[in-house]
Design a protein around this nucleic acid. Structure first.
Lengths: 230, 230
DNA sequence: ACATTATTCAAGTGATCTATTGAACAATAA
DNA sequence: TTATTGTTCAATAGATCACTTGAATAATGT
């Protein structure tokens, strides 16, 4: 029985071409940023363009590559078209890609330190520790991402306080409990900025590195608000 | 506190560029084929070129891109240079990429059916079932990959019978037990070919879809032979 | 030292990718 | 209907990628 006929070769090549199609979708920094945003919450083209600092046309093109590779899907909503991650497996793929990057590129750590230059100032708390403290009611947990991201999914018991609103809402926070903040994940600075403000106002603070995706991937439950119709 | 200064933007972009560097390494079918081979066992450039049907120079170039992205590492062995996967996280990334492809591209299934046109002929057995039957001694488990791949890691209790040797060694197999065969994973045809031969000679046969990487990723133990020096 | 073998390097060409621009299209509101 | 807004399409130019070829390197054996 032959197992290296030209036809076999050709079919094998087609298979790898298909896999590479997904790889190609992951081969551009802008597309990864879009994907990263979509992992947090579904968004329209316009929103994505604004948040990723790209032209709308360019954003649209990149989204279409992601869509071709079936990493994201789109849905019309009146005049808008809302994109979302196509499947939880895509989120896992993205987390795994970042895990490889983190383990293997020392550069990432250096870049990250430059980017989040205050990130070692605050005590860090692990997911396990947080669960214990939350059960005992000893901490307040803040989700400092934009509200839509909170609505798309958040940690159980977390309060939505987008970074912009934090200063205004400081008086709503109990002074006698440690405040834990989280945001999009280890590469996001929102939580650090929130903690700095809180620390300056006298709170005891701690940072959770995990974002919702990492939390869910670790097997912990996530709360989702029903999607509000605009 | 500003969180969207131009410097922040720039640093964020650098971070995504780093991630995209890994994505780019995954953006070519040849590189994925090389990676797939390396997941099975370390190999020299020459071996890889032969098995992937590429020129040596081209293979070398692709390997260097993989190496730049720290997906593989290399080591001199006399005149040869042996490449290997840099880290288990890389294997997980590759499995996750394939999982996304499988879930999302219906084409994969169609291509796969064309490629492994006999794949529905044989009974399939799950990893769990296999473990039970192996414990009871009710099946023989064959690893039909090349011997070096077996040596780099195999399922506990598996016997190495490379496809080429199978016909010659038929008389060593007990006739009264079902033979289960596995190879590189769900996209590999070696096991199917082995099972066809065995079925034609009267054996009861079954196929395990998992390869060693999938098996290990599922949390089951893997046996590794000490590496023989040539 | 010399020849041999495995691998990498360097240069060149055609293919693919990316960002930009301005036009086209689709849904909504006036 | 017409105007408006969000999104996509089409064309283009510059950058990057992929494969080939032939030369350069590095270890080994004579």
């Amino acid at each position: 029985m032959q197992h290296n006929t030209p036809e076999r070769r050709q079919q094998k090549e087609q298979l790898y071409r298909l896999f590479a199609h997904i790889g190609k979708a992951l081969a551009n920094p802008h597309r990864l940023e879009l994907l990263d945003l979509l992992v947090q919450a579904p968004r329209t083209v316009e929103e994505l363009a604004r948040e990723a600092n790209m032209s709308v046309a360019n954003t649209s093109q990149h989204l279409q590559r992601l869509k071709q590779a079936r990493l994201v899907m789109s849905e019309r909503e009146g005049v808008h078209i809302r994109y979302r991650v196509a499947d939880p497996a895509v989120t896992r793929l993205w987390l795994e890609l970042r895990a490889v990057a983190k383990q293997q590129l020392a550069e990432v750590e250096r870049t990250l330190d430059a980017y989040r230059h205050r990130r070692h100032e605050f005590e860090r708390i692990s997911a396990d520790e947080l669960r214990v403290l939350m059960r005992r009611g000893e901490v307040i947990l803040l989700d400092v991402r934009p509200r839509e991201e909170y609505q798309a999914g958040h940690l159980p018991g977390a309060i939505s306080v987008p970074l912009d609103e934090l200063e205004r809402r400081l008086n709503q926070l109990p002074r006698d409990r440690t405040v834990v903040a989280y945001c999009r994940g280890p590469y996001c600075v929102y939580a650090d900025e929130a903690l700095e403000l809180l620390a300056n106002h006298g709170w005891r603070v701690a940072r959770l590195e995990e974002g919702v995706a990492e939390w869910e991937q670790a097997g912990y439950p996530v709360e989702r608000s029903p999607h509000p119709k605009p």
